[in-house]
C-alpha cells in the first residue's frame, strides 16, 4: 500500500499515526480533486467563453470533447506518435466546433434573442446527437482504450503526496490554456473585438467588426479547449466511448452555475471546488450518493443565489423589480 510510504516519524503513538494517515489520505484526495477540477475547468472554460460571447449554451460542447478523444485514439491506433495525435485531434476539435457554429447557430441569429435562446439549445442539442450517434456507430457502441504504454506511467512525490506525470501535464496544460485565454482576451486586438461583440454585436458591426468571424473564432478556441480536455481525460481514465461527453456536460452545468454564467474566474474556482467536492464525496460517502449531493448542490445554488458565486445579479429573471 503506497500510503504507508510516507514519512511518519518512528515512535509516534499509534493514535496520532492513524490521525496522520487519515489527514494525509484526505490531502491526497484533495490533490487528486484539484487535478480533476482543473480538467473540468478547461472543459467548462470553453463552454463559458461561448456563452459569454454568443449568449447560447452550446450543448454540442461535450460531443466536441468526445470527438477529440476518439480521434486521438484512432490516430494512435494507426501508428501516429501520441503527441502528434493529440495535437491533430485538438485542432480538428476546434474545426468541428466551428462547423457546429456554422451549421447550428449562424442562421439563428436573425431571430430575436428570446427566440434564439431556445432555438440554439435545440440546434446544438441536435448537433450533439448527430456527433454522438456517428461516434456510436463508428465504435460499434464499444468503449475503447489506448494500447498499454501510450503514455509513460511515472509517479513523483510532492510534499509526500503522489502525483503522476500525466497529472503534472494536466495541470501544466490547464495553466497554459488559462493564461493564453486571459492574454488573448485582454491583451490582443482580437480579444478586444471579441469583447466588443460580447457586449453588443450591433454596436460592433458599426465599428467595422465582423461578428461572424468573431463567433467562429470563439467556437474554435472553445473547441480547442474541449479537445485538450478530451485527450487528457481519455488518457487519465483510459476509456473512450461515444457518450463520455454527457456526464461532463452535466458537471459543467453545476460548475458554471456555481461560478456564475459567463464569469471566467468564477468558472475556474467553481471547477476546482467541484473537483475536490466530487472526489471527497466518491471517496467517503456511500456509492451512488455523490450524484445526488452534487446535483442537489446545483439545484440549491440556483434557488439561493442563481447568479453564482461571482456572477452578475442582473438578467436572472426577465420581469420584476430587477435593477
Amino acid at each position: 500500500m503506497w500510503i504507508f510510504g510516507g514519512r511518519s516519524a518512528p515512535g509516534d503513538p499509534s493514535e496520532t499515526c492513524v490521525g496522520r494517515i487519515v489527514a494525509w489520505m484526505i490531502a491526497q484526495q484533495i490533490l487528486n480533486g484539484l487535478i480533476t477540477g482543473s480538467v473540468y475547468a478547461l472543459f467548462a472554460l470553453g463552454f463559458t467563453l461561448v456563452f459569454s460571447v454568443n449568449r447560447v449554451l452550446n450543448l454540442a460542447h461535450g460531443a466536441v470533447f468526445m470527438s477529440a478523444a476518439l480521434l486521438s485514439y484512432y490516430l494512435v491506433m494507426i501508428g501516429t506518435p501520441f503527441v502528434i495525435a493529440a495535437a491533430v485531434a485538438t485542432v480538428v476539435a476546434g474545426g468541428i466546433s466551428m462547423v457546429v457554429e456554422f451549421v447550428a447557430l449562424r442562421r439563428l441569429r436573425r431571430f430575436s434573442p428570446h427566440v434564439m435562446e431556445f432555438a440554439a439549445l435545440v440546434t446544438t442539442l441536435g448537433a450533439d446527437i448527430v456527433l454522438v450517434s456517428l461516434a456510436h456507430k463508428l465504435t460499434a457502441a464499444q468503449t475503447v482504450r489506448f494500447p498499454f504504454g501510450t503514455f509513460p506511467n511515472q509517479f513523483f512525490l510532492l510534499f509526500g503526496l503522489r502525483i503522476s506525470l500525466l497529472q503534472i501535464i494536466i495541470v501544466l496544460s490547464v495553466a497554459c490554456m488559462l493564461s493564453f485565454l486571459v492574454f488573448y482576451l485582454y491583451r490582443t486586438s482580437a480579444g478586444l473585438r471579441l469583447r466588443a461583440v460580447a457586449s453588443s454585436d450591433r454596436a460592433s458591426l458599426l465599428l467595422g467588426i465582423n461578428p461572424n468571424a468573431v463567433y467562429a473564432q470563439t467556437f474554435f478556441i472553445s473547441g480547442i479547449m474541449a479537445g485538450i480536455a478530451g485527450v487528457l481525460i481519455a488518457l487519465s481514465f483510459n476509456s473512450i466511448n461515444a457518450h463520455m461527453g454527457e456526464s461532463y456536460m452535466l458537471k459543467t452545468f453545476v460548475i458554471i452555475v456555481l461560478g456564475g454564467l459567463g464569469s471566467v474566474p468564477g468558472c475556474v474556482l467553481a471547477a476546482l471546488f467541484f473537483g475536490v467536492a466530487q472526489t471527497l464525496c466518491v471517496a467517503y460517502l456511500p456509492p451512488g450518493s455523490a450524484d445526488i449531493i452534487l446535483y442537489a448542490l446545483l439545484f440549491g445554488m440556483l434557488l439561493v443565489r442563481p447568479a453564482g458565486l461571482m456572477g452578475n445579479a442582473a438578467n436572472i429573471s426577465v420581469v420584476g423589480r430587477n435593477a
Binding site: 432555438a119 440546434t123 441536435g126 448537433a127 446527437i129 448527430v130 450517434s133
Partner: peptide, 13 residues
C-alpha cells in the same frame, strides 16, 4: 438518432 438530430437542427432553423 442522426435523423433526429438533423431534423431538430433543420426545423429549428
Amino acid at each position: 438518432p442522426i435523423l433526429t438530430g438533423a431534423t431538430m437542427i433543420l426545423i429549428s432553423t
